[in-house]
Amino acid sequence: MSVETINTISPTTNETVVTRNGVSAQELNLLPETAVKAFNSWRQTKLADRQIIVKKALARLEEKTDELAEALTKEMGRPISYTPSEIKTAVKRGEYLLKISDEALKDTDGEPEKGFKRFIRKVPVGPVLIIFAWNVSAAHNVQSVAILHQLKTYSIPTLSW
């Protein structure tokens, strides 16, 4: 099966500005496999360690603001006076999500009852597929903050072993 060629056409010049190969059938099949393997170890890391990586990545992304802004202007025609703000906003949003992550991911206590410890824990769901449109290439609309964890209920009797 021949691999798809993807040409990004500039809306300003109507000429091809970027060319990429589309994913092949084998590569497509490998993506979930790799994602599952990566998930199985990533899920065992501590939130604090994940936060450090996210923080570093956001800082690095901000350093690349001008470069990324130029790419957006070239590929989608959004004026250069606005695209750096798009990258900075994406970083700012990421920093906010980072800031609230301790609170958002902490356990929720269940109904207290003598002899039981109950709580709800937020745990990851697994490989997440994110498909996004060209006009939200860097950031993403605020109201679409997806629920990217699942709830697991714990009800543990307190035994005197």
Partner: peptide, 11 residues
């Protein structure tokens, strides 16, 4: 960002 922080892998 929330996906990674919660411990998911992402495609």
């Amino acid at each position: 960002i929330p996906a990674l922080l919660a411990g998911n892998s992402v495609i």
